[in-house]
Nucleic acid binder design. Structure first.
Length: 154
DNA sequence: GCCAACGTTGGC
DNA sequence: GCCAACGTTGGC
């Protein structure tokens, strides 16, 4: 059982969108970074839990908990010419990009803001990848102790 | 809108 | 393989 943090911009995909999806489940497509791809493809397991994090918004922060319900499989949006994430370099016979399916477990009672997380960056959340200067990965692992602490803030 | 960080691309 | 140019991310 591992924990993760997955970023989304609420203007393009929000927790409301996820809540409204059939079975509150969606494919987490469009990731185009090799490090993140490797985690989606190789490390995420069914049953793992992930924070849903809002970036590029007024108040960046964690808004919900999701569960991985389908492990890594080829990201079909890479094969679709009309898709914004189309990648002519991804061969259907040897896919370059992967995605997982996530299901909304529950919304948090409130947003745990980035500002609040940063306030603990030197103690309880020391080493958390999200808080590392310059980090831009859209998928990051979260240590169990960090996960637990963050939920205690809720 | 700015800009620092950093990944990718491509000429050499 | 180097590295400058370029594009993207994402907080502010």
């Amino acid at each position: 059982m591992h924990y993760w943090l997955m970023k989304t911009e609420p203007a393009s995909f929000s927790v409301e969108d996820l809540a409204a999806a059939p079975r509150r489940t969606t494919r987490w497509d469009g990731v185009r970074n090799y490090q993140a791809r490797n985690m989606l493809r190789d490390q995420m397991q069914r049953g793992d839990e992930a924070f849903l994090y809002y970036s590029s918004t007024d108040v960046p922060g964690i808004v919900a908990i999701m569960q991985i319900v389908k492990e890594g499989y080829p990201d079909v949006t890479a094969f679709d010419r009309k898709d914004h994430h189309y990648d002519p370099g991804s061969d259907p016979l040897n896919p370059r990009w992967f995605m997982v399916d996530v299901q909304l477990k529950r919304r948090l009672a409130r947003t745990i803001t980035l500002e609040e997380l940063r306030a603990h960056a030197r103690k309880e959340l020391r080493g958390m990848l999200l808080l590392r200067p310059g980090n831009r990965l859209s998928v990051t692992p979260v240590e169990a102790a960090h996960w637990k602490f963050i939920l205690s803030l809720e």
